[in-house]
Simulated scan of single mutants.
Amino acid sequence: MLEPTDLTTRATEGLRTSFGTQATVVGRAPGRVNLIGEHTDYNAGLVLPVALPHATYAAAAPRTDGVIRIASAQEPQAFTGHVDDLGPQIEGWAAYVAGVLWTMRESGLEVGGLDMFLESSVPLGAGLSSSASVECATAMAALGVNGRALDEQLQHSVVAAGIRAESEVADAPTGGMDQTVAVFAEEGGALLIDFDSGEHRNVPLALGERTILVTDTRVKHQLTDGGYAARRRECEQAAADLGLRSLRQADLEQVETLTDDVVRRRARHIVSEIARVEPTVAALASGDGDEIGRLFAASHASMRDDFEISVPELDLAVATAVDAGADGARMTGGGFGGSIVSIVPTDAVASVTSAIDKAFAAAGHNPPGHLVATPAAGASWSPA
């Protein structure tokens, strides 16, 4: 992984090469891996993500003519437009960047013309929230260009802008976990978010001799391909059939009264998954590897069987990691591909990654990628 100083340099040099512009600020926002609480955010549930050291960096400089020019090291085509013409009609990758500038303006934040270049170390399509990382880095750069010092109100505005851009412009029905942890994460901890009360708090992680290992199966997923939206509709249907505001209010006894088998299984995953989050917080705090393993195994089985969002590569990676010495492993993210997260004794990381590599080769799968998730801080901006 490139170091932050390298990425900052590449972003500022990219801005100069693309547009002949000298950066004045650099915004940064991390990717994330969710330890547990999958698809529970849009069901008013609990989630427990950590911010990754892998992040997006947005180098930017102001313009006086209202023109917006955006380029990215990860995309072949630059975006050019005018600040007065931004709106929900923006298409392609620019929806996650120019779309955020539009939603910021819609919420009353000052956004003028600017040049911007993005560089990122967050793997794309791996279920590690590369999109929210781009959104929040963009917002940070835009705030920095206008010299806005961060406070809690502005942080909430950045989260809201990212959620709205992803939902209304990129047409990906996000639940809000990704943007929230990208902004509010604290170094060294996880973020316990309650989407019923709207509260969140930092959870220090006493990992000791354990490491959070993320394995990218390299099976790409897209939140706009219909699977994610379908699960969300099924959860909303379950809550409506039960006469509840959300599945956060349901218990398993109520869920079993649902007559539609698919809707019942979707709801069963959500209710049981929400119930696993706080015990996972306790197990991580006490270093109870057996309990972590039990909770992760139950979570993965629920996503595989009831929510039906796993794929063979994810199942193979999870089983292999546990067999090779991980305390626990589960798929993480929206599903239909992407990554798994494992809690691994630090001295077993090399053997776990090697075992997964060999299992994938034997199965004829593409080689996976691995990264260590050292819990990082949330989004910020700094002078270039």
Rank of each mutant, 00 (worst) to 15 (best):
S272T: 14
G112H: 01
P367C: 04
S130R: 06
G198K: 12
A377F: 09
M331A: 08
F79S: 03
Q254E: 08
D306R: 11
S299G: 07
F19H: 13
A95M: 02
T257M: 06
H221T: 13
P204C: 05
R264C: 05
E38K: 02
R330L: 11
S129N: 03
E106S: 13
D194R: 12
R265P: 00
A160P: 09
G45E: 07
P123H: 03
F360Y: 15
L316E: 04
E187H: 08
G293E: 11
H82C: 00
G144V: 04
A98C: 01
P367K: 03
S197Q: 07
A58F: 06
G175M: 04
V322C: 06
D347P: 11
S133R: 13
A376S: 15
A44F: 06
W381R: 15
Q254F: 04
A149R: 12
L86D: 06
G87Y: 09
I70A: 00
R148Q: 12
S157F: 00
L242M: 14
E291L: 15
A71Y: 06
T374F: 03
L46H: 10
P204F: 04
S339G: 05
I212E: 02
A317D: 06
G81K: 09
A350E: 15
V219N: 10
H365N: 15
T12Y: 02
A149H: 00
E187M: 00
A321S: 15
S129C: 00
F117V: 04
V203N: 07
A373L: 05
A329H: 06
Q89S: 14
R105L: 06
L284Y: 00
A239H: 12
I292H: 01
L154H: 08
V318L: 13
T217L: 04
H300A: 11
S130A: 06
P375K: 07
T332Q: 10
F195C: 14
G198P: 14
P375Y: 09
Q249H: 09
P173W: 02
E313Q: 15
N366M: 05
Q22F: 04
D178H: 00
T346I: 10
A359T: 01
G113V: 01
R218H: 14
N146M: 11
A11T: 09
V134C: 04
P123W: 03
V67Q: 13
